[in-house]
Design a protein around this nucleic acid. Sequence first.
DNA 1: GCGGAGAGTGAATATCCTTTCGTTAGCGAA
DNA 2: TTCGCTAACGAAAGGATATTCACTCTCCGC
Lengths: 325, 325
Amino acid sequence: MPLTPYTRPADGQVRLLTKVARMYHERGVRQADIAAALNISQAKVSRLLKRAESVGIVRTIVTVAPGVYAELEEQLEEKYGLAEAVIVDVDPEADEGELLASLGAGAAAYLEATLSGADRIGVSSWSQTILAMVDRMRPFTVRGATEVVQLLGGVGAPEAQSHSNRLLGELARTLGAEPVYVQAPGVVGDPAIRDSLLQDPSMQEVARHWNELTMAIMGIGSIEPSDALAASGNAFAAEERQALLDQGAVGDICHRIFRADGSLVRGALDDRIIAITVDGLRRIPRRVGIAGGERKLEAIHGALAGDWVTTLVTDLRSAEALAAR
Amino acid sequence: MPLTPYTRPADGQVRLLTKVARMYHERGVRQADIAAALNISQAKVSRLLKRAESVGIVRTIVTVAPGVYAELEEQLEEKYGLAEAVIVDVDPEADEGELLASLGAGAAAYLEATLSGADRIGVSSWSQTILAMVDRMRPFTVRGATEVVQLLGGVGAPEAQSHSNRLLGELARTLGAEPVYVQAPGVVGDPAIRDSLLQDPSMQEVARHWNELTMAIMGIGSIEPSDALAASGNAFAAEERQALLDQGAVGDICHRIFRADGSLVRGALDDRIIAITVDGLRRIPRRVGIAGGERKLEAIHGALAGDWVTTLVTDLRSAEALAAR
DNA sequence: GCGGAGAGTGAATATCCTTTCGTTAGCGAA
DNA sequence: TTCGCTAACGAAAGGATATTCACTCTCCGC
């Protein structure tokens, strides 16, 4: 019941640390002024800030700037007809976590630079990559978007779902947008169940939102098993996966599965999924896919080949591999 | 499709920006050393870093742990001009006892973080909420204050008074402070009695202390009947209460009664009360009000609107309601 | 009950960073 | 070429922040 997934120090301390950190880093208040406001000494504020950093309440990260690999980006844009490619520099030796961090930071920077304030954004919430992005997004001072809509139902165990809800809420908050949740599981056992769920007024409402999106932010999934996927409650059973692999499936976006050439794999699964339709997805003008790493290469290629995304955020290695194909 | 122009600082400058940012933020090199290493001036390093931040190459984020409501606190502070709002996480389903416990714990943590050791604190002793706070204040490590002074006379039955005295003594002990008691009832039958009591040397002494307080800790009372209030010996007779309600009274602090807009309700009662004066109260720089729960919402609002408190400790639900008004 | 280590504090100060200021370099127009 | 304008620069001044210092208090082992 007690939830302390983040930090060690006592409760009251965390509150103070957070408060001070927000004042200093987000509102730009000087230490002396914070000290005055909170009736503590400036020295203490300095110490609190240091502490906040050491316990991870404050993180400062350096994104290796998009735009550095302009040439390679242009190559990708040209080759796959992308509106935009964003390449982040990741140490080739880096582990998966670092890769995620860099991709997330790169995507966050891209979004910050590119959001108009009038955008209506769809998000495929459950991906690790997108989580990393949200984590690294700075709160917008101006409105970043008007609404943030889930593109598919919750996946896996209930606690994983609430996690994904929090994620969406947090994104909405940092963008100053309205969150729109999908109150349904992502995959159900039977097509009939899905159809009846889709009739529900709340889903009808969501569907209306889906039709008016100006932008989608999506992870690109690879079909092969992954720890993260398994941990978050895998949507596809093992035999189903095998069947998909037999049909040439390499990846998925919003649970829609495609081959290396980008063509959609139709399957029994399709009718049991609660998510934006393929056509609906394609109607969204800007579709940003975020993925990187050796493991996802095939999937990314499929996503590009099938025009599933109009913008790709990926790492240097993957970009090189994709450009070379 | 319009290619969204995505701000690239065009230059190859970007490389330099990242390089400097990395050295500074990741390796912790001082600006002067970076300057030396790159053969540029230290001023330039500073400018580069600033630029890197504004472009989003460097981002520092503050993660807010669940159960911490920094944002809502800021909203309240802004809206009501508070020096500080402290919001404690209370299960919406919780009963009154749990609410009190959480408020008490929150207030205790706040005090712990904020007491300087030189503070002279006034307390409106009879409130349940403050009792809860004192209970939760067990492990106080350093000296918290030099003196703790009652802000009003004892209320109700003698045993309730001694209880309130014990409370003050305990708080004083926990804080390593001198207790200063008000040896008089809180409400007397006749203004003349009050005046003569106030002439008493011991009360004169107390009044001197009242003038030198640096902080007040106060419960916020609601005017409608409550079990707790009745049990502790209700100060106001039924007809008096009704008269107050007719004048728009919603709450009280130290027996001073105010309306929903914060304005003071003057009444016959005023002259029969032994407590710090309204002006005296307002002269105290930090006035911490502790209260929560549906029942007290109107009273809290009045206290905020009338600037009766500079710091508020309340629960999540109430905070939301207050922010929404 | 007596050191003594250790943690925490605010004031003062040392250190580091930002900004101002005067200057120069680059560039286009006259 | 000269003038005007802007951008960018380093030195130095001025601010903001980190750290030192002297001190207090607790905790612990003796």
